[in-house]
Each structure stands twice: as C-alpha cells, then as structure tokens.
Design a protein around this nucleic acid. Structure first.
Length: 806
DNA sequence: AGCACGCCGACT
DNA sequence: GTCGGCGTGCTC
C-alpha cells in the first residue's frame, strides 16, 4: 500500500502529494486524514495522509516513519474542503489543513547530533569531545547557540560519519493526564480488608470506606481524593500494592467552563414572528437541504432563541450544529446562553482559551462527545461528521474574513460545508452585509425578517447632533452641549452611560505648529498616535514606539501640539469635567491581559462605574439594564476612510451601538455626534431604516462597480524599494489586462492609503469582475512567477473578495 | 522550508 | 591554490 502525503512545509514547490510506502506493520493503521512523520530530503517532517493507493509512478519510495494519530484528525470532508479552500482562496493546501486544526497539532522540529564513533572523534576532533561528555547526543539548536565556534568541525565530523544528525518531529498535542484510583476488588473484599485494619492502618480503613460508600467501579482523580476527601497518597498506593485499588493514568479533558454550572434553561415561547422564521429552517434541517437563510432581525428581536430551538431539533435528529459568533470573547453572554441550554453538549472555541484547552474542546467535537460547537471564525472547521446546521451570527462582521493566509471567509466555508453535507446555513444580522441582503432579494438566500423586538420595547430614539454648529457656537470640546447635559443627568439619576469612540490612544497625530511637521512612523507611512500614560508615540500598524519629543525634530521649535482625540483623551476630559463620575475605559490597551475584558464588563455590569467608554469592542453584545444613554462621539471617524465599505461599516456600527440602549425596563436614548449629519448612513442609522440605507448604498455600489455588483480580487505587492514594487505591480496589471475578458476591469497599480508598512512599500492592483473562470489559475501563475523568497524580496499577496482595501 | 550542489571573489 | 558567498534546484 502507498500513501499520498502532504508535507508540512508551507512553500509552493512542495505543496503537492508525495508518495510513501506504508510499512507492513503500519498497514492497517494508516488512514487518510492522519498525521504521519516521513523522511523528506535529508530531514524528517510531519505530513498529512490525503489518500491511499496501490501503485506509484515512482520506482523507489521511502517509507512512512510513524503514525501520529490514532484516528484521522481530518475527516474525509475536511480533506476535500482543504483542497477546495486552497483553490478558492489561493493558498497552499497544507496551510488550509493547518488552519483547520488546533495550534497544538503543529509539529515542533528539533535535531540532535549523535556520536557514532567515539575513538575517531577523540582522535580527529578532540576539541569536540567535551560536547559529548554528558551523553552520546547533543541538541543542535543548543550547539548553534552556545558553541558556534565548533560548528565547522561538527560539520566535518558529520561528513566523515563520526557524528550523525538525527532530525526529530515533536507532536505538541498532548492530552492532560491525571492519576485516578478505582476499586479493584468487590465491595465485600473491600469491607473484609477494612475490617482487618488495625490501629496503625487507620488511613487505609478510611480510604477503603470511601470506595465502599461510593460507586466502587468509578475512577476518582487522586488529587481530588486527597484534597476533598481527606485521603492520603500513601494509603492509596499501599492499597494499590495490595491489589485492592487500581491507580492508573487517565486522559482528562481540560474543561475551561468547569465550575460555572449553568442553570438549565427551557425553550422560550416564540413570538409569531419568531415561529414564522424558524419553521422553514426546521423544515430544511429535517429534509437535509443545503438552503441558505438570511435572518434579518432588529437588535433584540430574539434571533438567538431561534438558533437555540433550531439546534435542539438538529440534536434530536442525531446531527450536529456549528454556531459562529464574532470574536467570541466579546460575547460571554452568548456563550452562557448556549451552555445553559445545551450543557455539556457544547464545545466552545474561544480565543482566550489556552492552547491545551482549545485542543480539548476540539477533541470533544472530533470524538463525538458534543453536538454543538460555538466559536469564532475558525470554528467553521469543527470536525463534526454529521453536520445538520451552521449558524453565522452577525454575518456582516468583517472578522469572519481571515486577514492573513489562508484568507478565507467563514461565510463562504460554511456555505460550502452546507452544500457538501446537505445542511442549511443560517446567516443572522440586524444589519446584513449588502452582499447577503442582495442575494436574499434575488432569492438565492431565503429571507426571514424579524421586525419587532422580543420584549416589544420600542427602538430607542436617536438624535443626531451637528458638531459644526457646536463649533460655531464656540463649543470646541468633544462633547456637544446636549450630550454633556444628558451624561450629567444620568449621573444624577444613577443610570449608566456608554460612550463610543472608534479610536484608541490619546490623540491621532502630533504636529509642529510652526513648521507643520507631523510625526510619522519611520517604518510605515502613517502618523504616530500619542499615548499619554507613558508619554509615548505609538504606531498602530507595526508597534513602533518612541518618546514624544518636546521640540520639533524638523525645525527645533517647541510648539508641538496634539490633534484629534482618542479614548485616553476623552477619559481625561471626563475626569476633568465630571470628577465624580466613575469611568471605565475599554480598548486594546486596557484589555490586553487575559480576562481583562470580562473583568471590566463585570465591573460595569455591577454598576461599579457610571460611564463605559470604549472603541469597537463595546459595540456589540453588551446588555446592561441600567444603560439608558449611548453617545457616539465621532460618527464620521470611519465614514471618510478610503474604502468602498466605509458607509456600510458606519451604518452597521451606529446601528449596533444604538442597540445598547434601553434594552430593558428603563427607556433609553442615543446621541450621535457628527460633522456630516446629512450623510445617509447616519440619517438611516438614526432612523433605524435598513431598507432605505440598503437601496441608497446599492445605487452607489452600482455606479462605481463594487460588490455586490462585481467581485473583487486584490493583489498586494510589497518591496523595500518603491520602484521595484511599482514595476512588478505594473507588470502584473498588464498581464491581467491581457489575459482576462474585456468585461473585467483592472485598476492600478495604485498606492494604498498607507503607502509603506514595516519598511516595505506597497502597491495594489484590483480586479473587478463578474465571471472570469480563468482568473484563479491566472493569479496562481502570477503568484508563482513573481513571488520570491527571502526577507528583502518581492512579496505578493492575493486577496479574493477582500473585506477592506487598506 | 532546508539542504546540497555549484560557480565566482578575498584570503591562508 | 582554498574558503565561503548565496543563486538554483530538489525533496516521494
């Protein structure tokens, strides 16, 4: 038997199957989807078995070294999905397989240098002898790090076969092992033994009594017995020696949610709207149809309850469901709802979990211990074998698109899996992406609409404030008069306020008032952001940091001024204007450490603060009864970005932020501050009018030839020298023009809004097209032709259906 | 990705 | 004359 193996090297030339012989001993244990180690060139690598066959074209094959997994880590479906993904997203097949698996399954590679001939070493290379004094083997990385002077001689000795190199592949995926004790004898025997215990063996008697009283066949973790049942290690091991108990190592699944025992919830009665929406989904689940639903429901319309009840039916039918939520740590409330309804039927793929915890959650899915997977983007690859439903909540979220290779969109993967498995996909959102809504209108997707809030509370009134007028009236602060009054009013009433500003740091840029110099990142063409806490300037793109200069580096004058406002500045302003208000600031800078997010939210939820001030991350999922005021400080901050989705993103964000107010008994209101209050994205968000926004935006997309009317492919070219990058981008554009149909538009090369990142100049070409069957193969050729290896070389990245043009 | 083979410059 | 620079090509 011969196995086709994809080698774990993400590089173009080796991204194809290699044939290996399966040794007799492994014959029955090699199955496609398993990881194996194989000799490859002069080294040893990990590989994925993708197929088995009887014969090979090659005369001489190497043998598979070891089989790593007891069961395939990639199911047949995922193997197939990986091939599809490699093609659709123009990524390497191994990278596609890699992204489907938890990070611990990545192999670690080490090498040892082993001593083969002691005498010859002493004779010819006496200086190397001390390196092998402690054994016959030395770690290669260790030698490189600590004995660089000896490397030459080591190489010579290797060539003479006095030393040998021994490559090793380490599987990081290890199940957590614990010691567990169980009774090895019958209750009567245990009782007899207990009876014969004398005064000295009192602890043994207690231990025996424990096993008599409790289910004797069960295995109890030894640490638990010692800590919670007052038994001792010594007595347990003595009893094990006597053959009365058995102590063994057992695998244990790490449970990140242990201890948070949820009160089981029952399905809630559905409103008429909900019942109407769930019916076709259930019908589709029952008849295994790969139908796609777009569930358009206003914030608070009870979409989640629909998901829960649909999943319940999926489980009844013996199938499994995947639920995707955007960056899951942001919505712990969502996780709780699933845990509360389905208990330990749920695996949660959480970005805040440790690698080991993620691995165990993954194993629960793979081993069929759970029927529901809830998680962010990558959970779309959950290895279920009888998939019955995929749900994508907040389907418009751009975080469903992975921004580095493989650049896949979870929505596309979900739809593909739906097709393969004959299972429906439900896309849910209060503000669907234009693409999805347009497809729903064309009946490609089935539209389900929920117009009413679940608890019949009205949508909060939204007031747009024209900040230009505020300026004219002499108010130069970040707070309009009305917003400030309302914040003060909430403070007095002990109600809470959420303030949203889509910009972290203190101020957006630092400029010299006398010569106009703006301080920019030396590696990226973008201004540095001032962070007041440590008086530093930071680049939000590459992480560069420098002390904020007191004098202008260009002209030496001391008139450096800070412009624009970030969350830090707003926080300082609030402290100055309303010293009695307790403010929690939430942005990447305050939530960096693990659990920081939950901690701040818990504090706010417990009313330990009056004002929650934050960036994007507070826009969704928050549901606090005492929040009655939501303020958007600068609604236009995203509106004027050079991205054709700027209006859509603004509308979505404003709608979502508005949804944070008045979700419960207390009525809420929303204040939006803007310098362009006449913009339809702001007017329609304020008016809670998705339909109107949709038709206005569709006109603009149509006029400019953007999605959903055209598909996009974005080719990014970077090089340390601008001219080299520009030249390559220009050649790529002309190749595209020559080879695509006349219906395709090729734009560029253009310089993106950030012309340089991390010392590399950037150029972009964009293809707008409707149907170009040759595009993918052509782009593949271009990539192979232009892509160079090495640090200071031309780098190419191709993004099919980009979500942002930055 | 590694690693070897291979063809040209600065040194014992 | 050799050491070693990294360009090119191969790995079942």
């Amino acid at each position: 038997m011969i196995a086709e193996v994809f080698i774990d090297i993400p590089a173009g030339p080796v991204d194809r199957p290699f044939d290996y012989l399966i040794p007799e001993a492994l014959k029955s244990s090699v199955i496609p989807g398993m990881r194996v180690t194989v000799p490859f060139g002069r080294t040893k690598r990990l590989g994925f078995v993708t197929a088995l066959k009887e014969t090979s074209e090659l005369p001489k094959l190497k043998k598979i070294d070891q089989v790593i997994d007891p069961i395939p880590v990639l199911t047949d479906e995922l193997l197939d999905l990986g091939r599809w993904l490699a093609d659709a997203a123009l990524c390497l097949t191994v990278s596609a397989y890699q992204v489907m698996l938890p990070a611990v399954m990545k192999a670690n590679y080490t090498k040892t240098v082993d001593l083969k001939n002691q005498e010859q070493l002493s004779e010819k290379y006496p200086s190397l002898v001390p390196l092998f004094s402690s054994g016959k083997s030395a770690d290669w990385d260790e030698l490189v790090a600590h004995h660089p002077a000896d490397l030459r001689q080591i190489r010579l000795a290797i060539n003479e076969d006095i030393l040998t190199v021994n490559p090793q592949v380490h599987n990081q995926a290890k199940a957590k092992k614990i010691m567990a004790a169980s009774a090895e004898a019958s209750k009567e025997e245990l009782a007899a033994a207990a009876a014969s215990c004398d005064g000295r063996s009192g602890r043994q008697k207690e231990a025996l009594q424990f096993f008599i009283d409790n289910n004797a066949g069960e295995r109890f973790p030894v640490t638990d017995l010692i800590k919670n049942h007052h038994l001792t290690r010594q007595s347990l091991s003595t009893l094990a020696q006597k053959g009365l108990l058995k102590i063994e190592t057992v695998e244990q699944l790490r449970d990140p949610y242990s201890g948070s025992v949820e009160q089981k919830t029952k399905p809630l009665p559905l409103t008429d709207e909900q019942a109407k929406a769930i019916r076709p989904i259930i019908r589709s689940v029952e008849s295994s149809q790969d139908q796609i639903f777009l569930c358009h429901g206003v914030t608070g319309s009870g979409k989640t309850e629909i998901y829960l009840q649909a999943i319940e039916r999926v489980i009844e039918l013996g199938k499994q469901a995947i639920v995707l939520v955007p960056e899951i740590s942001l919505t712990p409330q969502m996780v709780h709802r699933f845990k509360a309804r389905f208990g330990d039927e749920v695996a949660v793929m959480h970005s805040a979990l440790s690698r080991g915890e993620k691995y165990d959650e993954w194993r629960k899915i793979r081993e069929g211990k759970v029927n529901v997977a809830v998680g962010a983007r990558s959970a779309v690859f959950a290895p279920f074998e009888n998939l019955g439903l995929i749900i994508i909540d907040e389907e418009h979220e751009t975080s469903y698109k992975q921004e580095d290779n493989p650049r896949y969109h979870a929505r596309d993967v979900a739809i593909r899996r739906g097709k393969i498995n004959g299972c429906p996909v439900v896309l849910g959102s209060a503000t669907p992406s234009l693409e999805s809504y347009a497809r729903a209108k064309k009946k490609v997707y089935t539209l389900l609409t929920l117009k009413e809030r679940f608890n019949h509370h009205p949508m909060p009134p939204v007031k747009v404030i024209d900040m230009r007028e505020e300026m004219r009236d002499g108010n130069h602060s970040m707070f309009s008069k009305e917003l400030f009054e309302k914040i003060t009013d909430r403070l007095n009433k002990h109600e809470q306020t959420v303030l949203f500003l889509n910009r972290r740091g203190y101020s957006t840029f630092v400029m010299c008032r006398s010569c106009g110099t703006v301080i920019k990142c030396p590696h990226c063409d973008i201004s540095l952001t001032y962070h007041r806490a440590n008086h530093m300037l930071k680049c939000h793109y590459c992480g560069f940091e420098m002390r904020s200069p007191d004098t202008c580096p260009a002209c030496g004058s001391d008139s450096m001024r800070y412009f624009g406002s970030g969350t830090q500045k707003v926080e300082a302003e609030l402290n100055r204007l309303l010293p009695e208000a307790r403010v929690i600031r939430m942005d990447v800078d305050t939530t960096r450490q693990k659990g920081g997010h939950e901690k701040l939210l818990r504090q706010f939820g417990g009313h330990q603060a009056d004002i929650l001030l934050g960036t994007q991350m507070i826009a969704k999922g928050l549901d606090f009864p005492e929040v009655t005021l939501v303020g958007v400080l600068a609604a236009d901050s995203m509106l004027h970005l050079p991205d054709f989705r700027a209006s859509e993103k603004t509308f979505q964000l404003l709608t979502q932020v508005s949804g944070r107010a008045g979700r419960h008994e207390l009525p809420g209101e929303v204040i939006i501050q803007s310098y362009t209050p006449e913009h339809y994205a702001i007017i329609d968000a304020a008016g809670h009018d998705y339909e109107r926004f949709f038709s206005q935006e569709m006109q603009i997309r149509h006029r400019h030839g953007y999605p959903p009317f055209y598909y996009l492919a974005l080719i990014n070219v970077t090089h340390p020298e601008a001219a080299v990058a520009a030249d390559a981008a220009g050649r790529i554009a002309s190749i595209l023009k020559k080879n695509l149909s006349s219906a395709a538009q090729i734009l560029g090369p253009v310089v993106p809004s950030i012309a340089r990142i991390k010392d590399r100049y950037r150029f972009q070409c964009m293809v707008k097209y409707k149907r170009e069957p040759e595009l993918i193969p052509l782009l593949g050729k271009i990539e192979r032709h232009f892509q160079e290896t090495g640090k200071d070389s031309l780098q190419l990245s191709i993004d099919m259906n980009p979500v942002a043009l930055m």
